[in-house]
């Protein structure tokens, strides 16, 4: 019971990490997806390269490089900043792929129609394609939120004091690993259930009849 305050502190860090990297990843993802779909040869190749490298390597390796290796080239980050940067860069690549799936599921006629009423390519993307693609991506986005919630736990390894780290600290002192980690497991379980319920509601509200029923998006393991 005395452990509760420090677990709450850890939970706070966990939630901060989750939401900030989700949002930062979204913006990065939008950029990467648009670059991949609409960019020229070079831009598109760069985006693909980034996405494939991030998705082809473990998050932990990325965190190690940022936190332990960057100082050797003169970039030193606080653990929490390294964690935020790593999680955001990682999530951005996955979110880019979800968005790309959504963008490509939108019939090309949408773009054509926007251009025929005189919109520029950029305007068409901004006003016609993106709003639809973002809505279609909401289920994938919810998946990503839950993925991040769980995977923020590994930044414990680079000494960020989030929920798992606080738990480990208390458990190591009291040698009550089972009890403490059972509590932590339940906290994560409750959070995943709460988050997915909220997003489901949100998704229903934003749903547009007939939009995005056929979008196929390869998800990573979240729920």
């Amino acid at each position: 019971m005395e452990s509760l305050p420090s677990l709450l502190d850890g939970l706070y860090i966990t939630l901060i990490l989750t939401f900030i990297s989700l949002i930062a990843g979204l913006f990065l993802g939008i950029g990467l997806a648009l670059g991949r779909v609409y960019g020229g040869k070079i831009v598109s190749a760069i985006c693909i390269g980034y996405i494939e490298i991030i998705r082809g390597t473990p998050l932990l390796v990325q965190l190690f490089i940022i936190y332990f290796a960057f100082p050797s080239i003169g970039i030193t980050l606080e653990a929490i900043d390294a964690a935020l940067l790593g999680l955001s860069l990682n999530s951005g690549a996955y979110q880019a792929e979800y968005l790309r799936g959504s963008i490509q599921s939108i019939p090309s006629g949408q773009m054509v129609a926007a251009r025929t009423i005189g919109m520029t390519k950029l305007q068409s993307i901004k006003n016609i394609v993106l709003p639809q693609a973002l809505r279609i991506s909401i289920p994938a986005w919810s998946n990503e939120l839950i993925y991040l919630l769980k995977y923020t736990s590994i930044v414990y390894i680079i000494q960020v004091k989030e929920l798992t780290a606080e738990g480990k600290f208390i458990a190591a002192e009291t040698f009550k690993f089972l009890e403490i980690f059972a509590i932590i497991a339940i906290i994560y379980l409750v959070l995943t259930i709460v988050f997915s319920t909220i997003i489901e509601k949100f998704e229903k509200k934003l749903r547009i009849p007939g939009l995005g029923e056929k979008a196929k998006i390869g998800l990573r393991n979240a729920l």
């Binding site: 769980k150 995977y151 736990s153 590994i154 414990y156 798992t164 738990g167 480990k168 458990a171 690993f177 980690f181 932590i184 497991a185 994560y188 379980l189 995943t192 259930i193 729920l223």
Partner: peptide, 9 residues
């Protein structure tokens, strides 16, 4: 629903 690291611990 539980992070892998928590399962490991």
């Amino acid at each position: 629903g539980i992070p892998l690291i928590v399962i490991f611990f």
